[in-house]
Write a protein that binds this DNA or RNA. Structure first.
Lengths: 411, 411
DNA sequence: TGATATTTGCTCAGGTTGCGAAATTAACCC
DNA sequence: GGGTTAATTTCGCAACCTGAGCAAATATCA
């Protein structure tokens, strides 16, 4: 029964673990300088963490020999706990695992036919997870202190009760098999989160992620946290209208970005212009060989994309834009026109403050994001029970800090 | 010296006060059901709040006579404390005041020439504040437990150190005069926050606010909190390109929404089309009289606006869109075309989940938002001291809950 | 009318957490 | 070996949360 006090303690533990994660090995003294807690409390917490095995004394003795007693350097125990994330994409399952230090220890994927029943997809995921943890040498899967699984799924997540896609059942299956809570979100959004932590925008707090794949979508990271929107419908960049007179889109609209910038749209346009490419690798090959038709097409597509990104930038003000998905493999042939168009339409004040980057995580991004979901939401799992009878919500009062921050907010 | 424990306590006090704010008078028992704290703790906190005068027993005796001892109904003491907000607009100063119950107790405005020095504008603000608190009968201004002033200013706020607009000096002047901390943000953004609390989107957690005035701008409320963006540049909807071949804009770009939907742009276009109107009221009058030119123009402008809003909706997923600023006074003549265009370009899944509304707060919105800034950020003022030597930041781990929430996050 | 049940308001003892001050330990320097 | 310095540990106290239990006020029942 997690009361407010245990929560406070847990928050402080998270704070200390977070410092170790970001700074690497640290002595107790250095830790104390950064965490804002009193030495006594910090030592108490550290003793607890050491006892639990989450933190161990670093073996390296590269201490800059000072005058007094040498400080013991502490570091996270890389074997103490793991978290896994599973991305149930349309035609494949991806899994990934990280250790307590938030270092990726492995990932695996396996394609499957579209429409495979949830039972079999869960079975497949479980097999991949076994392979991962086994290969890592551990044997039995240990979820450690995190005790939750993150899941990425296709389609909007987070809306009210309806469950058209069977997500609730999926969560049930996973809970049953792994015996731990399951957290889920849209896999493209999770890819955005992953890129903001391990990928092209590591450490950046405000990220706009655009994914150009069979579908076109994306996600927003706001203040370091994933943005979901009112009905879990945030990040649908692919269905922004770029040409009201354009082609019909599966979503019911016309001239959506997806009808211009999806894989199929680009390949169709390429073939219509006389090019020959059956899939993205062939298109990439053509681009590498300097095919003028391909380059011209990508220039046009990139220009459209850049216009949409510029509008979003002005509205949302991210500091990094990440472009991912298979089409991003065409590299500068696509990114340069995007950047040109973006620069032309964005506000001049913002222009040199936004950086456009290509995604770095590839197909594991969704699974990694699912892990991040667990790591970020984990304190949620220990919150004290809800009233339950009515959806009582707090207004937007900012939560208490768990870590020092500068109170001098300059107006 | 506010340690983590005092903060915890303060958080719980805020929680209880927040419940009273939103639900109005409540008995201890009802309060207990919602706050998730143990009865003992709750009673302790309430005793403290009653002793401090922040909470008083409600005089009304409309208790639904139950079986046992009748419950004492508690309510916020409307005279216990006040907060003030000041909006330093380009050509006017607006001030507003609220009591602890977050009820607006008064507001006042006074126009002034553009470019007035900060000293005189602060002087003007102080005079307005004196008038307000005096008129309310109180006499001396009491800021109560809040002890901070919120300020709205023109231009981006929240970026790094540079201070081209003299905001730092303004904060200094206000701190000196009122002797309390000063919190500031962009006034249009603050208007968005105000609309999400007291205005057209009361209680809504995800709001997109668009302001059509001399400039065109807006703000985003995400999860009930104001969104600032990486460099304080969020909400610049006015500089989204709607027509790359359009007119030059002051921002340096071309064809920005502001070149189409600002007051001057609309009036110019109206006159160019043969209409006669020197200012917005005259335009509104023409609209009311069914002037076909005006209606046609607004239809076109609204259509442009709707297209931009649709794109933003797909990306951000708000549940309410609020349109404010002087031009919104043209009413349905503008809102209907906006809604049509919005509905046509938004994703069908989202269509009936987004509601478009006209702002309700008028010119006081900025000042009210400044108050909200103080109310929302107030816990910040009591956070424990920072390390100061380096900008140590926590990653995006969600903060601890101060209030019950449903831990069952359905995937 | 009086007894009982029920709900509410409140107190008390106990456990946990955080923190300041003093004591202890382990190195270095002379 | 003795002194110095800094890291670590111990100790005692204060603040906070909580469960249990008691008193107060009222409705219901005999």
């Amino acid at each position: 029964m997690p009361g407010p006090l245990s929560q406070l303690r847990r928050g402080h533990e998270e704070l200390v673990l977070g410092l170790l994660r970001r700074h690497g090995p640290l002595s107790r003294g250095e830790l104390g300088k950064h965490c804002g807690l009193s030495r006594t409390t910090l030592y108490d917490i550290l003793a607890e963490l050491v006892a639990s095995g989450a933190v161990v004394a670093a073996t390296q003795q590269e201490a800059p020999r000072g005058r007094g007693r040498p400080a013991e350097t502490l570091t996270l125990n890389p074997d103490a706990g793991q978290a896994i994330g599973i991305d149930f994409a349309r035609r494949a399952v991806h899994v990934a695992a990280v250790n307590v230090a938030h270092e990726v220890v492995g990932s695996a994927s396996e394609p499957h036919p579209a429409g495979l029943p949830w039972e079999e997809r869960v079975e497949l995921a479980a097999r991949l997870v076994r392979g991962l943890t086994g290969a890592h040498g551990g044997g039995a899967l240990r979820l450690g202190a995190l005790s939750a699984i993150g899941v990425g799924v296709v389609g909007p997540v987070g809306g009210p009760g309806d469950d058209p896609k069977g997500h609730d059942r999926l969560a049930g299956l996973l809970r049953e098999r792994f015996g731990v809570p399951v957290l889920a979100d849209n896999n493209t959004r999770l890819a955005a989160l992953a890129e903001s932590i391990w990928g092209a925008a590591t450490g950046v707090e405000d990220v706009l992620y655009l994914r150009l794949s069979h579908g076109v979508g994306g996600g927003l990271v706001v203040g370091g946290a994933l943005h979901r929107g009112a009905y879990g419908l945030s990040g649908e960049f692919g269905h922004i209208t770029v040409d009201p007179a354009g082609a019909r889109c599966d979503c019911g609209g016309s001239g959506c970005l997806e009808t211009v910038a999806s894989i199929r749209a680009v390949l169709d346009a390429y073939r219509a212009a006389g090019g020959r490419a059956e899939d993205v690798p062939e298109l990439v090959k053509a681009v590498r060989e300097g095919d003028a038709v391909a380059l011209g097409l990508l220039r046009e597509v990139g220009s459209r994309i850049g216009a949409v990104l510029a509008a979003l930038c002005n509205a949302i003000g991210p500091s990094v834009i990440v472009v991912g998905g298979e089409l991003a493999e065409t590299g500068v042939a696509l990114l340069e026109p995007i950047e040109e168009s973006l620069g032309a339409q964005i506000m001049p004040v913002t222009r040199n403050r936004v950086s456009l980057r290509r995604a770095t995580l590839g197909e594991a991004a969704g699974a990694l994001g699912a892990i991040a979901l667990v790591l970020h939401e984990s304190p949620l799992l220990s919150r004290y029970p809800a009233d339950g009878d009515e959806g009582e919500r707090r207004p937007a009062a900012p939560d208490r800090a768990e870590e020092p921050m500068n109170p001098a907010r300059r107006p």
